[in-house]
Design a protein around this nucleic acid. Structure first.
Lengths: 344, 344
DNA sequence: ATGAAAGCGCTAACAT
DNA sequence: ATGTTAGCGCTTTCAT
């Protein structure tokens, strides 16, 4: 029952309490170098008794190494980035590295500020979403002298390494499948986010595939904010009223897709005959809906894992590396809202 | 187009480039102390040109102050903690403080390890979920010498400050509302998590309220893992088959509640007449379902905001404080799945 | 308004 | 296996 110390404990305190030099205490606490079992035990006991917590600020300064990995993502609010985080943690949990997360809210200037802040902690590596950044951010990344992995998207030039999928291709493939299934009057529903480059690239790939099939987007609608499920429902209703002959709706994410699906089920529309639906992401959250939405897996946890592996390999194994490119290939997950192609 | 420096830049580099002492450069970069406009401009230009990023490791060691707030939560996977995080960020964004998140995965030992790791960075404060921790964790918290705010739950004794709701009371009030509405055969569906103390307390309060009304839980089911929406559906089906006279189901979270709601709608059950349903959390994610689930707001972002305010006030305004207790009172959100009490 | 010196708590490098 | 010394890059404090 000793009262809490006013001054935080230092190595010196443990050194004095155990009668061992600071250096040896440091070695014990870090499991580095040869220390006799007897000394080790004594030090550990003293440290525990005092309630000593090492000061990584001082340690980092002295060793010039900080086991932090900066992770910068746009948001936490739609489950895709939390899943990426889980993939990252899964790998880093087996190492000494620790992820530290920062949010950009899809704003490049904010991303730049967060990056600056994080780099000032001298992390061992940086993982950040997307290939589009401010010039200043790219400059900081390029001169940071640590592994940089840009994730999610591979349609562009990375500063260093990149891990992701081609969203252009993802949109194109879904477009091709829809065209092939014989749908003609196709609508697109998405988010109103000029800065969501990945959604934009999917949209581009999608329209491109339709064009190749001689089709154009028959209608489209974009939203911002609010409950995605409800927005999906509302936008679907709006589009179907405005353009009644729509026979397919491609949603830019599964959540609004689910809202649309629920709406169509309620209206007793024949899915996928009368109307087909598809989303994007493969959100397992939504398993359990009355009917499964056809969608495309964005390989989120795999992306997190690969990115973390690159950082870990270069940081810990001293592998030289640099410029790694990992392109994952998403596949359509058929869920019963996209009909089979007509027989030849 | 200068090539990236091998050695990270230091204050000295900026000092030399600008012809101003390190000390003055430091003052400019921190906006502290009097510096002439001329000097300031010169320093800022030099720093920008070189691409200098301050070293907070060194700064933190020298100043003995680190603007980090450690936040330890169980998980990111169910939207409740991300919402708490948003509340925290909302407040801290207006200050110099920065949140750093660690996850405990509902394991006390893991929480202890994460806490130790975070305390070793000497944060300005700690926010952590729940009042139940290992003895070692409580000891660390008690002797850390910084503001500690335990959040979510107020049914217990905090180490220092606490902000949350009484889950016991939340469960009791929902139980009372259900009893008052005249339901008699009441089931409970929840997660199989002995370490989720808040769910346990809600359950306790709930059974207590039923007991006061002369009722007992008629059936119950618990799940672990998997898609909550689907589990809600499956468990609802199981319970209704096993105990067909069930007239109310209380779900421990809105996600499984939504799954149950979708199942009941599909089976064309009369809600809330034939069967009533209620959840917990007030997840706006689910607005857009064909029928709204009656639930209870857990005040998540408000909890985050209040907790951050306590840390900010004590850290920045030097307010002495200590032991603040903020008890928020959640209210039932009626959504059409709980019938009105019978007329007297 | 600016500068010089000392030192934050730890670890690398070099003894012994 | 253990100890000693010299910083790591900044900020504090005290001068000027």
């Amino acid at each position: 029952m000793s009262k809490p110390p006013r001054r935080p404990l230092t190595l010196r305190d443990v050194s004095e309490a155990s009668g061992v030099s600071e250096m040896t205490v440091s070695r014990v606490l870090r499991n580095r170098g040869d220390v006799s079992d007897k000394t080790r035990t004594r030090v550990l006991e003293a440290a525990k008794m005092l309630g000593y917590v090492p000061n990584k600020i001082a340690g980092g300064l002295a060793s010039q190494r900080v086991n932090l990995v900066a992770v910068i993502i746009p948001s936490m609010s739609n489950m895709v980035f939390p899943e990426v985080m889980m993939g990252i943690s899964e790998i880093l949990d087996d190492t000494e590295l620790q992820p530290v997360v920062g949010l950009s809210h899809y704003k490049p200037e904010r991303e730049e500020a967060v990056l600056y802040e994080m780099l000032s902690w001298r992390p061992s590596g940086v993982i950040l979403a997307g290939l589009e950044h401010t010039d200043a951010a790219r400059a900081m990344l390029a001169s940071a002298g640590i592994p940089i992995v840009e994730i999610m998207d591979t349609d562009g030039e990375p500063v260093d390494a990149m891990v992701g999928i081609s969203h252009r291709r993802a949109g194109r493939e879904m477009g091709e499948a829809i065209v092939k299934a014989g749908y003609k009057r196709i609508a697109f529903l998405g988010t109103k986010m000029p800065l969501d480059h990945r959604a934009r690239k999917r949209f581009e790939g999608f329209t491109q595939a339709l064009a190749k099939g001689g089709l154009e987007i028959a209608d489209s609608e974009f939203y911002a904010g609010g409950s995605a499920l409800m927005k999906g429902r509302e936008m679907t209703e709006a589009v179907l009223e405005r353009t009644p002959d729509i026979d397919f709706i491609y949603y830019s994410n599964d959540m609004i897709g689910a809202g649309g699906l629920l709406y169509c089920l309620e209206k007793q529309l024949d899915i996928p005959g009368e109307i087909g639906l598809a989303g994007f992401n493969g959100v397992s959250l939504l398993e359990g809906l009355p009917k499964h939405l056809t969608t495309m897996d964005a390989c989120r946890s795999e992306i997190g894992r690969k990115a973390a592996e690159i950082i870990a390999a270069r940081t810990l194994k001293g592998a030289e590396g640099g410029g790694e490119v990992v392109t994952l290939v998403p596949e359509i997950i058929y869920g019963g809202t996209l009909r089979n192609p007509p027989e030849e």
